[in-house]
Design a binder for these strands. Structure first.
Length: 593
RNA sequence: GGUCUCUUAGCUCAGCUGGAUAGAGCAACGGUUUUCUAAACCGUAGGUCGAAGGUUCGAGUCCUUCAGGGACCA
């Protein structure tokens, strides 16, 4: 990239002028702020001590050196300690000439040599997916795409939490009140049907507790002695004992849930290379804990429970296996980590999991380190913030959950209404409309959730619908559609006949080109931070730069043929990058809207 | 009791490893369509970057303390 050459030249200038040895990467080049003239800026304050001259003079001297030694430099200006450098038009034309045919512009194809496994989604099978899961799924999918674009070899997996007391609760309630109800008989989506019984369990359980408390039992005791919870626990025991009837019901109800999830995943556009099931991995986890015990990495307490002492790591003692030999959460994660490494041989294993589990993953990584597992250092918890509602976080038991399927449907309904209202549906064939509504609705939802820095918690207000204007998915999709509309009307052009060197380069054209030039950097930054938000911000900047251009420059009406062709290529490349960047986010872009 | 984390405009969010006058969108107000799609564009207004210290040429960004929110471990 030109910045690297520029850094090298600046280092040479400093060496020549002040006899200071700096490595290229110690030179920091920034993009010039829009209110100033120039493309890139070098800030000289850090070398003043050695240059022993004023900021202005130092910057001026470096600028003059560059002007004679750096051919791509057209001009420079100095404001205080800021050296603003303008590149030549020639440079920008060459850049466009070399780029507009590159279908993979911005993507890295030289393999980084790094294999990465991204685990995401990882639902429980006792209830349908909600808004928090949507954030997780979109993040996981997008991060995988971004890492691929950075040249890594990426696989994805989904670890399904398909066993445990929560599933038994749904099972118990279904056995009690279900009368053999199925998704077919009820017309309910499988995961919603099972979720219905999970709620029914909770209602029954609470009622039993209040009855026991009314009869004088302390509430803590009542929570343990309510018949419903005892029944669920017995179901779990029977499941672990491989009781056929119990396992059959478990399989049946889980299959309903999987059918339901498959529908939601399809709507979200996410997929996985491999599924793991905790019902398969927890046994392996127990084995590994036994190995660690034998190696004295872990220790056993009097009641037979197994622990690891992490006090030297600043944490405390952590339970790995209960006294009765049953596993805890981390037991199965130890097993899964091992399995994933064996299956994918990956240097890095990314876990897309909420930040409420920060402590858990810190512990998991430490355990693996203490066991000298080769994959320990590669464990990376992509810890994302919760989605909060105006009244606090979502609680399924309090009915404050925003259901994934409902929200998706609502988005598509809104997209339909808005499109019709704006009269945009008219020119579009009937058969394409539904897909368009889906594209816009999902575009709005996905962009809304992805534009926020993953690490931060975010607010969602169900009372306010997600916008379609401004910094939104549909705005950027619209920009794409507008460009495509231009490109449909250009007629046949043989671009090989033109070079653009004679063309004028206006300020807005230059600004658009400059933004286009930043795309590879955006992909790199997004990969480094595993943040789709970086791509969102970039795509928005690009769309804004285009719209600004669109209002100032005409493409089709431009009379100068070279100028016209230059603009066609400029705009064509812009559309391509919008599509490409949205691809990294898992968002489609329409040809018309 | 301990650990982690967050606090930027009325609202939702940007702000890269410290750099120029802290930026967008929404909401509010005003303007732009005989010209490639007005889901657009332009403008006005809106800020003690939670508070106080410190580090330095320079702090929203780094350090300390405090307040408030959130999460987790026992």
């Amino acid at each position: 990239m030109i910045q690297d050459i520029l850094k090298h030249q600046i280092a040479a200038a400093i060496k020549h002028l002040y006899q200071i040895d700096l490595l290229d990467h110690q030179i920091v080049i920034e993009n010039t702020k829009p209110e100033f003239e120039g493309d890139f800026t070098y800030v000289v304050f850090s070398i003043l001590k050695q240059s022993k001259k004023s900021p202005e003079q130092t910057a001026q001297e470096i600028g003059e050196y560059l002007k004679t030694n750096f051919s791509q430099l057209a001009d420079f200006n100095v404001i205080k300690g800021f050296l603003n450098i303008s590149l030549s038009n020639q440079f920008w034309f060459e850049f466009l000439n070399n780029t507009y045919t590159n279908k993979d512009y911005g993507f890295v194809f030289t393999h980084s040599g790094q294999k990465i496994l991204v685990e995401y989604s990882s639902p429980n099978t006792n209830k349908p997916l909600h808004l928090g899961h949507i954030r997780n799924n979109l993040l996981g999918y997008s991060v995988a795409q971004i890492l691929k674009a950075n040249g890594h070899q990426v696989n994805t997996c989904n670890l399904v939490n398909d066993r445990g007391i929560h599933i038994c609760k749904s099972m118990y309630a279904w056995m009690q009140f279900g009368n053999g109800e199925t998704p077919e008989s009820s017309g309910l989506k499988g995961d919603h049907l099972v979720g219905k019984y999970y709620v029914a369990f909770d209602k029954q359980y609470k009622q039993e507790i209040s009855e026991l408390v009314a009869n004088g039992m302390p509430s803590e005791e009542a929570e343990k002695k309510a018949p419903a919870i005892i029944a669920a626990q017995q179901l779990l025991l029977r499941w672990e004992a491989n009781d056929k009837e119990t396992v059959d019901i478990w399989k049946l109800m889980n299959s309903w849930v999987y059918d339901g999830f498959a529908v939601t995943y399809k709507k979200l556009g996410v997929q996985f290379d491999k599924y793991y099931y905790e019902s398969n991995t927890y046994i392996l986890g127990k084995d590994i804990v036994q190995q660690g015990l034998a190696a004295e990495t872990f220790f056993k307490k009097e009641d037979g429970s197994v622990w690891i002492d992490l006090t030297n790591d600043g944490l405390d003692q952590k339970l790995l296996l209960r006294g009765d030999g049953t596993s805890v959460y981390i037991t199965q994660d130890i097993g899964t980590a091992e399995l994933k490494y064996k299956d994918f041989d990956c240097e890095r294993s990314v876990y897309v999991v909420g930040n409420e589990q920060d402590y858990h993953f810190k512990v998991l990584q430490l355990i693996c380190k203490h066991m000298h597992k080769p994959y320990a250092d590669g464990i990376y918890h992509l810890s994302y913030g919760m989605v909060e509602l105006p009244h606090g976080r979502m609680k399924s038991r309090e009915g404050t959950v925003v259901d994934a399927d409902d929200l998706i449907d609502e988005m598509i309904t809104t997209a339909t209404a808005t499109t019709v209202e704006l009269g945009k549906a008219n020119g579009i064939p009937e058969g394409e409309l539904n897909h368009l509504y889906e594209t816009i609705g999902m575009g709005a939802l996905k962009y809304y959730l992805l534009k926020v820095d993953p690490k931060k918690k975010m607010m969602f207000n169900p009372e306010e619908s997600i916008d379609f204007q401004g910094n939104t998915g549909p705005f950027i999709q619209y920009t794409h559609a507008r460009i495509k509309s231009i490109l449909r009307n250009t007629g046949e052009i043989d671009f090989t006949q033109f070079d653009f060197n004679q063309t004028n380069l206006s300020k807005t054209e230059r600004a658009l080109l400059f933004t286009i030039y930043q795309y590879p950097q955006a992909i790199f930054d997004a990969g480094k931070d595993m943040s789709p938000g970086v791509i969102c911000n970039y795509a928005y900047d690009l769309a804004k730069a285009f719209n600004h251009f669109y209002h100032e420059c005409s493409v089709l009406k431009e009379e100068n043929l070279e100028q016209r062709n230059f603009r066609i290529q400029l705009v064509n490349l812009t559309a391509h990058i919008i599509k490409s960047s949205f691809g990294l986010l898992g968002i489609e872009v329409p040809e018309k809207m």
